[in-house]
């Protein structure tokens, strides 16, 4: 069954609760979060530092379990999946861009971009060829054989973007993708993200502090005090 993009949200979170620590040291980070992201849109999550944005992303991605509430991705309740199915689901449908690019320093740009395909069992040569294609698409054709330490921050983040997109995931999750970059590099990464990641049947969630890139957002959700304040469309 292929869900119709129009009818089903890409991500639907209902009443998510998540805390860390025990007893007196316990902090409630998510306190009844409702959130949705639609196919074909760039959804931003913004909010003050420490408000729980990364925690929310981790729960959406299935990397953390919420104590209460549900997460539906593409209409499927991920909490109902076994650990193994969840890993497989993540491998197939999710792409990640982290604040620190977390590239493997021993691999070239093309090899780094190919990692999700390798994890999915692709042959090395085919995977690297596909990774190279994507790097070319992201304007890095001159750097495919370079190692991460030889790349600028912006170039590294573009390699990370290639890695997030190489297996054509339906949901791309980005945590502060531009925080470590200067203005121009941040703009470039966001433009590429908007252009390459968004298809009618895929969605992108971006957590950011970076007001300079808010204009790329289709929707912005404000997370504060453990809840989403009010979803709104950005003023033009």
């Amino acid at each position: 069954m292929k869900p119709k993009p129009a009818s089903i949200p890409a991500v639907l979170c209902r009443d998510l609760w998540k805390s860390f620590g025990e007893e007196t040291a316990r902090i409630e980070v998510l306190r009844g979060v409702d959130f949705r992201a639609r196919f074909g849109e760039l959804s931003f999550i913004v909010g003050p530092s420490g408000c729980g944005k990364t925690t929310l992303l981790s729960v959406i991605a299935g990397l953390l379990n919420a104590e209460r509430g549900s997460v539906e991705l593409f209409g499927e309740n991920v909490a109902g999946l076994s650990g193994r199915e969840r890993i497989k689901f993540r491998r197939r449908h999710l792409g990640f861009v982290f604040q620190q690019c977390n590239l493997l320093p021993a691999l070239t740009a093309a090899e780094n971009a190919a990692v999700p395909l390798l994890a999915a069992g692709w042959k090395r040569r085919a995977a690297i060829a596909r990774g190279t294609e994507l790097l070319v698409q992201l304007g890095l054709e001159a750097r495919v054989r370079a190692f991460p330490t030889k790349l600028s921050g912006g170039e590294q983040q573009r390699v990370a973007l290639a890695r997030a997109l190489v297996h054509q995931p339906r949901l791309v999750i980005c945590d502060e993708p531009t925080a470590a970059l200067d203005h121009a590099a941040g703009e470039a990464v966001m433009e590429l993200l908007a252009a390459a990641a968004l298809r009618p049947d895929s969605a992108v969630i971006v957590v950011t502090h970076d007001t300079r890139v808010f204009r790329f957002a289709d929707t912005i959700a404000h997370l504060d005090d453990g809840r989403i304040a009010r979803p709104k469309t950005p003023s033009p």
Partner: peptide, 15 residues
């Protein structure tokens, strides 16, 4: 960190 990244991307524990 690299192993964590691989885990997030979906590399199984067995792998």
């Amino acid at each position: 960190k690299q192993f964590a990244a691989l885990k997030a991307i979906g590399v199984t524990d067995a792998r």
